[in-house]
Design a binder for these strands. Structure first.
Length: 551
DNA sequence: TTGCAGTCAATATC
DNA sequence: GATATTGACTGCAA
């Protein structure tokens, strides 16, 4: 009866509870041939047993091991027993396979080679999990992502970086082999991970892959093998190519996971990459500070003045907004981590916004803000942006004001590039829509600006302006922390939130990641900026429409 | 249409 | 040679 009902009136995925999704996952697995008939211990009645194993899926993911209960027969619990053949009933085989090795913490040392019994010595073929997950695998990863608990993206990337660095493994290799991403994407991801709750399903995929990889005791070995193989292939090719005149093939020594997948033959006709001159960037930044969301007309003007294509200007704004947003995330995470040491919640969670109610309130001063920079930041957009990123409602309200107040200090000294446009700055200030105001202290651009060079100079300047009282900074940071604790990350599905299990599951030191302090002065400044921004926002808020502030 | 997320891939930098 | 940066593109959602 249940089946009939389900088949005839399936509910949309989004409306299903985790449990409710199980049958669909099973169906999908079955469709993919992953579930052999009878595999499921349907022992018993239509009731529960069947679902059991799937239920365990979540844990395996998280913990990296199959919960014993799921499979009555194999009591193989989480013991790191490698390869412990999961009982067939592990219907979820495909999923668990991804997890490969249970819980073992990643070894950072190259030498450590976990005895890997049954695992096909990576040595011979079968390199690490080929990314281009084929068929079911791909599906599995998606399922894993869907069911994955909230992950500490920051911590994960930190660990991945450590492992890669310690073992001298490159991002390209890792990206292509493990994540299915290009080197640039990997670099970006590792350097600026977004908090889990801010990621879309797709965006979470790389993190789940990383976590799975971290959980694989043979991860390093496999990658090393890959590396060796690549080298061999490269040498081979090189030799042969020497003899052949063959216009060098794509040297992408890469894993050929590309075969068939995406042949990308035609190389020619590529248009040259546009490289904006420093002055152009400056002008654009300035324009951005005044108007993060320029109207088509403004864009036109900018394009004309800078002699760029409008599409280039549009793209620039898109990219800039998006990148600044990410910078903010990092800041939040770092600030949060600084403020609190062992919080139970993950940094990512922490960063999360959301907490409508707790946000603004307190600012006690935590030491978050680093001195120097503190001042500079704020600028106009900053606040708003910040708010936005946080997701809090506050942002909306605040943003406008903030901006108004903040005189955009922007003008850093530099002579505005010739035609720095900056049309209606004023206008947009109030603009309701203004979503994410540039977090960075737009003012001097520097702050959030990814580009250190640019930022640096400015930073110092407005410190004064920002006037962020020393105490403030901390506030922000702390604020973040509090927030998190106070409220569960917004997005995180309740189910997902299970601190304890999470930790054990992934074996992540949780907060650890957050801790990482790249003592990048620039970052500190940014953090300081944020703090000051918050402060100003609060001031403004109290002054004007307190009511609106719903932190 | 517009904005965004996620990526790619060219190029810059280390 | 590896990694970081960044302009451009794709797909999706509102």
């Amino acid at each position: 009866g249940s089946v009939s009902d389900m088949l005839s009136r399936p509910k949309p995925w989004s409306k299903l509870t985790q449990k409710g999704r199980e049958p669909f996952i099973r169906m999908q697995l079955w469709l993919n041939g992953e579930l052999g008939q009878g595999v499921l211990p349907v022992q018993g009645q239509q009731q529960g047993p069947v679902l059991h194993s799937v239920t365990s899926l979540q844990d395996p993911l998280q913990q990296g091991c199959v919960s014993s209960e799921s499979t009555p027969k194999t009591s193989a619990s989480c013991s790191p027993a490698p390869e412990s053949p999961m009982s067939s009933s592990e219907s979820v085989k495909s999923l668990t396979e991804l997890v490969q090795q249970p819980c073992p913490p990643i070894e950072t040392s190259k030498d450590s080679k976990p005895p890997e019994p049954s695992d096909p010595p990576a040595s011979d073929s079968q390199p690490a999990t080929p990314l281009p997950l084929s068929g079911h695998s791909a599906l599995s990863i998606q399922e894993l992502v869907a069911m994955s608990p909230e992950l500490d993206t920051y911590g994960i990337t930190k660990r991945v970086k450590e492992v890669l660095t310690d073992n001298n493994l490159g991002q390209r290799l890792f990206g292509e082999t493990i994540l299915g991403l290009t080197q640039g994407s990997v670099s970006d991801l590792l350097a600026r991970p977004k908090p889990w709750h801010k990621l879309s399903l797709k965006g979470r995929e790389p993190f789940v892959r990383m976590q799975l990889w971290l959980n694989d005791p043979n991860n390093v070995e496999k990658l090393m093998d890959m590396k060796r193989m690549e080298k061999k292939a490269y040498m081979k090719r090189r030799h042969s190519s020497v003899s052949d005149s063959q216009p060098c093939e794509p040297p992408s020594v890469g894993i050929d996971y590309s075969q068939g997948a995406s042949p990308q033959p035609q190389h020619q006709l590529k248009k040259p990459r546009v490289v904006l001159a420093p002055e152009e960037k400056e002008a654009l930044k300035r324009a951005y500070q005044q108007k993060p969301y320029p109207s088509p007309k403004t864009i036109e003007e900018l394009a004309t003045q800078l002699n760029l294509k409008t599409s280039t200007v549009i793209n620039w704004f898109h990219n800039y907004r998006s990148r600044i947003r990410r910078e903010l995330f990092i800041e939040e995470i770092q600030a949060g981590s600084q403020g609190q040491a062992g919080a139970s919640d993950s940094p990512s969670a922490r960063s999360g916004r959301a907490a409508p109610s707790s946000e603004g309130d307190s600012c006690d001063g935590v030491e978050a803000a680093e001195g120097p920079g503190a001042a500079d930041a704020e600028e106009s957009g900053g606040p708003a942006a910040a708010a936005k990123s946080q997701g809090g409602p506050a942002e909306a309200a605040a943003a406008p004001e903030e901006r108004e107040e903040a005189p955009r200090p922007a003008e850093k000294a530099e002579p505005p590039p010739s035609g720095t446009p900056v049309p209606d700055a004023a206008a947009d200030e109030g603009r309701p829509r203004a979503p994410p105001p540039p977090p960075e202290g737009p003012a001097d651009g520097p702050g959030p600006v990814p580009n250190p060079a640019a930022a640096a100079p400015a930073a110092g300047e407005d410190a004064a302006t920002s006037a962020a009282p020393p105490g403030e900074g901390p506030c922000r940071a702390r604020d973040g922390a509090d927030r998190s604790s106070a409220l569960p990350s917004t997005s995180a599905p309740a189910a997902a939130r299970r601190p304890s299990s999470l930790q054990s599951l992934f074996g992540l030191p949780e907060a650890a990641g957050a801790r990482d302090s790249r003592d990048n002065p620039l970052r500190k400044k940014k953090a300081a900026n944020l703090n000051s921004i918050i402060h100003r926002l609060e001031k403004a808020a109290s002054r004007e429409e307190p009511i609106e502030w719903e932190f």
